[in-house]
Design a protein around this nucleic acid. Structure first.
Lengths: 377, 377
DNA sequence: GTATCGGAGGAAAGCGCTTTCCTGTCGGAC
DNA sequence: GTCCGACAGGAAAGCGCTTTCCTCCGATAC
């Protein structure tokens, strides 16, 4: 009998929430039946007239010596049958944890695609398959992905991107990660200082401080901030740096001049509109990431407001587009690719997950053409 | 002969400190053999004092009814042990092929990240894990990834991106894909018309023709082309469209005005330099993708050449940045996200791989500010 | 000549899970 | 009171592979 359709009648247990949620979703998916025509090792062995053991040895280049004649027969059978070993069976028989998983908010966001590029590079150098998971900033999905990656027996998990101000989530996430580590998995986090374990943490606060000093130093007094989602720790950290700079230079950063939006181009464009409408006297806008800054630039241009003559704009991250927009964006550089590289090295470094290894990554101010002194009036 | 019950060889955890017992077992286990202390279904069953069969049924929500009490015990054990089933074992026991693989040139290239976003969306909706593989335009790596994905038993493979002018590679690639399909896998290609099977193919030739007509129609006579790598069919196809437009408008597109480079921003910047140096009289540059166009814009700006007053620039693809550079890029829009969506739908549509289903995707000219009539001289 | 060793190849045990098959029990019909 | 079916739960058979472990053989040593 084929698999029983376990659709709706199934009483939904709820204990390990995410695990079941995932199973549930998978079940809803169209269930592709198993492949009938898969060629197995046994087929190869049969055709080569040897035992499966011998076939396996030849194929894996085992240390054990196999007579040339048999070897040739096996190889030919492999070729003829276009045999490809079943990775799942291999993984079961010889637990080899070779893949690595990364959980990002969205690979199509340049911030993450740069990081991913770094991760990828190192993973590839080590002959590892990189499994990329997009959470789209949904904490629940992040939790699910940890389970999924763990189920896939990946060698390491790299959660990248901002943390959330949500102690329940943080606790759950940490617990899952910990459980994963207990089974021998490695974890290297990028940019989430609230997590335990190895981490690569960018200088969000310090970078923003630099940026703040630059803008305030230029003489701006009425500056608006285009911030990311309130729940993200990255937003908070960068905001903190800006506040410190304001304090030190004796300026103000009142709450009404901070508007929160999506960490995206459109989020930035919308936020800039709000700022323009509510605070007409602004001479500078600091966006908490480059995408938002680009959006702000677009809004400003639409309104015929000159940058930097009327209003200065600054971003954060120094994503590739930052230098191609006009005016080229003044921003804070985070070595994104480098961060990916370091995180993956951490994740792949062997040895037991002992003392958490935390690497700080410095931020650097990049002055370009979108900022200047405030207009004289 | 029946296999010996493994329960014997496993130390029976003492009831209270099971977790600790497990950690201990992990430590005792061979350090190098990958997964030391993984919690197995048997552990859960033992702790819940039920058989593995029952535990499995509870966890998977099998149709078979399980007494409430046992169900609760199992669920609690799962919770306490933080059990996550081994996906490999599951896949072996019940081959369900739920993951899907995509092979792209580079996810950090916006062209691919948009496509990937579309693929991802549909995959997620179907409860599928998407495995993203970057070939970095290395044909060998592409071949390897097909094997790897097949070994991983993915339900479908989506090779995205341009094909190569390399008949040997094409043959090999096709053969591998065919072999994969024979084992029940699905294949949906994006943009490789030389491949067999389901495909989503963008109107490269027609799009370029549109673009050519636009530029020639504006009155340009000396136009340079910034082309991608010669080996890519995408380059050839787009070039063909341009040539057709030239023919129809009675213009020339001499080989010396076509410069080939990497399909990247820097490739475009370099190509633009060559063009400026070798063909000073150019009034327009058509780049075969947006990234290259952005690079060209940067070069032109550096040289103080005004766009579009001195030289018009056009791109291809309509990647998100296209509208944010200045001047905003005139380009040809390909509905990238949509293409990903359609390809994934094709890949996930069940039924045997019958008659290849090929979907043509139209291109649309997007007029923005980087193009205009040639300067009067 | 026999006892021994080494090495090549095959048999079989598992890896962790699902699912079929089987067993034991209980309730109801007769 | 007996018999049957229904059903809950456990035993066990794989899934495809790797890796012992074993067997068999010829070669070497005595």
């Amino acid at each position: 009998m084929p698999r029983c359709p376990r659709g709706k009648s199934r009483p939904v247990p709820r204990s390990p929430g995410t695990l079941l949620a995932m199973a549930e979703r998978a079940r809803r998916a169209d269930e592709h039946a198993a492949p009938p025509g898969a060629v197995t090792l046994a087929d190869v062995a049969r055709r080569a007239r040897v035992s499966p053991s011998t076939a396996s040895r030849v194929i894996n280049g085992s240390a054990k010596h196999v007579a040339e004649e048999l070897r040739v027969r096996v190889l030919r059978a492999v070729e003829e049958l276009r045999y490809v070993p079943n990775a799942h069976a291999q993984n079961l028989a010889r637990p080899k944890r070779s893949a690595v998983g990364v959980i990002v908010h969205d690979v199509s966001d340049p911030y993450f695609s740069e990081i991913t590029r770094g991760l990828q590079r190192v993973a590839t150098d080590h002959g590892r398959l990189l499994v990329i998971c997009n959470s789209y900033r949904d904490p629940v999905r992040e939790l699910e992905y940890v389970e999924l990656l763990r189920a896939q027996q990946v060698a390491a998990i790299v959660p990248a991107g901002s943390g959330y101000h949500d102690s329940r989530f943080t606790r759950d996430f940490n617990a899952k990660l910990r459980a994963y580590e207990q089974t021998g998995g490695r974890v290297a986090v990028i940019g989430r200082h609230e997590m335990v374990g190895d981490a690569v943490v960018p200088a969000n606060e310090a970078g923003a401080y630099l940026l703040g000093m630059e803008v305030f130093g230029l003489g701006h007094r009425r500056v608006g901030v285009i911030a990311g989602p309130r729940v993200l720790t990255t937003t908070t950290d960068r905001l903190a740096g800006l506040r410190r700079a304001a304090r030190e230079t004796g300026r103000q950063l009142p709450a009404r001049r901070i508007v929160y939006g999506d960490f995206s181009r459109d989020g930035g464009a919308a936020a800039a509109q709000v700022l323009i409408a509510d605070e007409p006297g602004l001479t500078a806008m600091i966006a908490l990431n480059d995408s938002m800054a680009v959006g702000a630039l677009a809004t400003l241009r639409e309104r015929g407001i000159e940058v930097p003559d009327d209003v200065s704009v600054a971003g954060f991250d120094d994503v590739p587009i930052a230098r191609d927009v006009i005016p080229a964006l003044t921003t804070v550089r985070l070595p994104l690719v480098e961060m990916g590289i370091r995180a993956m090295k951490l994740a792949l470094s062997d040895g037991p997950a002992g003392v958490p290894h935390v690497e700080q990554v410095a931020a650097e101010l990049i002055r370009r053409h979108s900022s200047g002194p405030p207009p004289q009036d």
